[in-house]
Nucleic acid binder design. Structure first.
Lengths: 142, 142
DNA sequence: CTGCATGCAAACCGTTTGCATCCCC
DNA sequence: GGGGATGCAAACGGTTTGCATGCAG
């Protein structure tokens, strides 16, 4: 994961290393608070402000993604290629949806209203595999 | 959409009437604070709490939409059919995008990951017509 | 050794809520 | 008249920020 070395602007601190590696090794799309908890296990004296500042810096420099899904707080993603998410309405979990970026939609939308569309975000809602299974087993017990 | 008649639960107060009519006659997707300002012109003694409570009630009952786009605060929409939005990266304005709901995408995504997708939200980003024009006139002055 | 990054705590901002009063039905 | 709705103000939760100190380069 030679993400940081290529951008000399950012100073590599222990806090940053832990945050970035934590996110790269996770698919859980944690909130800032959850990242804070994670980092604290390795660096107990880290401050929440530092976590916020670094999540900001790292996302601004393109090392991570800052996700703003339909809930109060933001989430962070170590996977930075353009992809979509599902938010489970039952448990709140956020999962990746492996659907190729739908550039044709952007093309379709781009003609309308004389706008110039440069990006898009697609958020799915529904049930994650676990909750789906749970729900089905309630309705149809063996 | 006989939404109101079937739900006698909501009491029709002056505050609610002003909020709802204001939203129905607008396409600007105002924030709660902007709705507050609008209502205050008619009911100067209205409280911000009341505005929040009513925006909540009205959206919960399906009379308006609560939008959570990628910015700090939520916006509200008097148009309740499923449609998409563009957020202008230059001026922050939010506009409707008249693109039919892309149900085929949901179908495509639904097979993956064993999820059960029940809804989706599509947010475009780019330049609104005004800002697009402004930008072009800067680059290519006559 | 320089100045960006940190820890700490206070501030911030959008939103929610408790309570006494009001007013719609 | 009764109970939901209001105004007011305080509280809340996530996030940001000012400042003195620390540490990476």
């Amino acid at each position: 994961m030679k993400v940081i070395e290529e951008k000399p602007r950012i100073r590599i601190t222990r806090q940053r290393k832990v945050i970035l590696e934590g996110l790269k090794n996770s698919t859980s799309h944690p909130t800032a608070g959850e990242v804070y908890d994670m980092v604290r296990q390795e660096l107990p004296r880290v401050s929440l402000g530092t976590v916020y500042r670094n999540l900001d810096t790292l996302s601004r420099d393109g090392h991570i993604l800052k996700l703003d899904l339909d809930e109060g707080q933001k989430r962070f993603d170590g996977r930075i290629d353009h992809h979509y998410h599902l938010r489970c309405l039952s448990c709140g979990r956020v999962l990746d949806i492996n659907l190729d970026p739908q550039t044709d939609i952007v093309k379709k939308a781009n003609g309308m209203n004389n706008c110039l569309i440069t990006g898009h975000k697609l958020e799915f809602t529904g049930l994650c595999p676990q909750c789906r299974r749970d729900e089905e087993s309630i309705k149809q017990p063996n």
